[in-house]
Design a protein around this nucleic acid. Sequence first.
DNA 1: GGCTAAGCGAGACGGTACGTCTTGTCTTTAG
DNA 2: CTAAAGACAAGACGTACCGTCTCGCTTAGCC
Lengths: 200, 200, 200, 200
Amino acid sequence: MPDPDRRSDRARLAILGATTDLLAEVGYRRLSIEAIAARAGVGKQTIYRWWPSKGAVVFDALLEDAGATAEARALPDTGDIERDLRTVLRETVKELLDPDRDRIQRTITAEIQHDPVLAEELVARLLRPQMRATADRLQAAQEAGQLAADVDVDLAAELLFGPLFHRWLLRTAPLDARYADALVEHLLSGLSRPSERVQS
Amino acid sequence: MPDPDRRSDRARLAILGATTDLLAEVGYRRLSIEAIAARAGVGKQTIYRWWPSKGAVVFDALLEDAGATAEARALPDTGDIERDLRTVLRETVKELLDPDRDRIQRTITAEIQHDPVLAEELVARLLRPQMRATADRLQAAQEAGQLAADVDVDLAAELLFGPLFHRWLLRTAPLDARYADALVEHLLSGLSRPSERVQS
Amino acid sequence: MPDPDRRSDRARLAILGATTDLLAEVGYRRLSIEAIAARAGVGKQTIYRWWPSKGAVVFDALLEDAGATAEARALPDTGDIERDLRTVLRETVKELLDPDRDRIQRTITAEIQHDPVLAEELVARLLRPQMRATADRLQAAQEAGQLAADVDVDLAAELLFGPLFHRWLLRTAPLDARYADALVEHLLSGLSRPSERVQS
Amino acid sequence: MPDPDRRSDRARLAILGATTDLLAEVGYRRLSIEAIAARAGVGKQTIYRWWPSKGAVVFDALLEDAGATAEARALPDTGDIERDLRTVLRETVKELLDPDRDRIQRTITAEIQHDPVLAEELVARLLRPQMRATADRLQAAQEAGQLAADVDVDLAAELLFGPLFHRWLLRTAPLDARYADALVEHLLSGLSRPSERVQS
DNA sequence: GGCTAAGCGAGACGGTACGTCTTGTCTTTAG
DNA sequence: CTAAAGACAAGACGTACCGTCTCGCTTAGCC
């Protein structure tokens, strides 16, 4: 309904900024549209005009921050697949361990549980690119003969990030660089040998 | 402060029951203590007396339900490790795909993001036992010579459940029985062969 | 703090009306802001925004009603002071005996016991005007030679209304028209004769 | 229902004492049965067993205090009716001006507005005796020939106390000793002269 | 360059829920 | 076997926000 052309960028940025600030100060739970509007020096209607929910505002505010990070995390390609995977996983772990990122990331994760639309946006803009890049790197390694030809590189990427995020989100065990290394180690070496398996 | 000896079990169960019902009906977001009290025929104070937050009530309500489920999901041991893992993973997938369980499980997952105490309780009472059981089943297979002796069974369990929950929580891709099978398949066969790896 | 210019008259009148109705139905003690808001179809905040306490709302509601009454009770002046005073006192008695007015009036009287500010407002807007009018009527009679020149007309007014309200408020004896007449009778005839007094 | 013989005097006095204390500390409005029980070191049930309402407890507590005062205020009889009336009215004024008595008296007055039973008890135990005594003193004066034989002594008593309490309760004007004197003066002298009245 | 249709800030509104407090009843515990 | 202690159902308190709705006031952008 409202005309995007006439949208005030001043207001937009003030809202996003106030949201980021307040998120850090009081957390998602106690964050209110009222407070965002007040902090941003903006009428509540201006928020409701452009965002459908608190979650959406928060989401945009976080993406604003996360954007640069994601770009910067382009996968390295040194020719050594093991080293490159180690690098990217350790980096991911380090990021998740940073208190600020931790809070933001958890907030966004909690948020998408109840909002599939946001979920899709998050996946499309942050998660999928990262996994895609990892899978691409694996494929390059495959083409270089460093990996078996029958390896499903997408599945492989999930075998790296899946357990990592599982530990982090569900807190089943502490997350550290050694775990990242162990995942890479397993992926590249294989856990079991075909010869040792019984016939099923 | 209040004396647990004098706690009314009637009220406790009514509250937990009402919470479960309302969760399924309106979801976590629109679940209110007010509504729980009304549905349970209980004073609000009785809820506040025994639980510190809405999250805690929901959590207890969930555990009450999940208890039996968890017990019932004792791992099968048919002697065939592949079949057994397939069974347990497919079961887990099926459970996560059930709308009610999905909603409840997501709710609780979102909840623990901001509450490490709840997180630890969830892990201790639900997640850890399941992974422990899986790891134990793997160890039995190992002792039966169906798996290489150097396999880290705990890591193996994470390689199964990690990617599963990753897909489910972050919605990076649809979750189905085929994916469960693929995870088992990978774990037991190995993705890469040692002989094919380049020297690093 | 709130801006009186933007005040909704619709809400104001609905609140005052609901208050009057509920006062008559359940009395002051069991009157709740909650109920007023519900009956008026108004948010509680709208009440708290404009009135500091339940007493203040009730007070305004009463004055709204009493306003017209007070205006209408302009003193008659038939030329016959005794008849006019009888009329006004009997009218007052009749009003106090009406169950609705009785309840409201008692409520407000109880209320001002603990709130001098409300007291002053009540006196200024209702009580003082009535006594002033009565005193004025007495003065007119005085000027017409119907009363001694040295009579203090203000004191005289208190001698009429004081005993009346005393009976009514403290319930020391039943209130009726005969009592009103007796008070007028005494005021105009004098209880004791100067000639009969002993020297003091 | 409960047996008055078995009533614990210790508890009764503790309750009455706690009530008086709390009344002075927080006033009637914010006085709660809960607080009285806690302060008195008594179960709430013990209060509910013996008193029907908060008002009743307060009432008893206040009467406990007021009792002695009332007894002590026996009317003087010096033979000079004017002086005696002046004394008793001035005393009453002084009492009403004392902050503690003022608060207690107002509380009790507010209370009886909504409780005719309490009203009757107050009247019977405090108000009526005082007015009776005043009327009796007037009658003695009458018999001594100091007052006209046709004076209604009960009405006369109301003409003294009525305006006094009217001023005090409704705060229509400040209460002081001069006003007390003026009332006595009027009662004994008469406001108007019969000879000056017009024929009605 | 003036008109007009927006977006804007402000904030009152009808509501819902919060977490606390008190009421009056009922139950448990200790003397 | 009584009375304190206090849990309970009920419901009002006053506050915080929700999302909607006017208000005037900029502020474009089209005439």
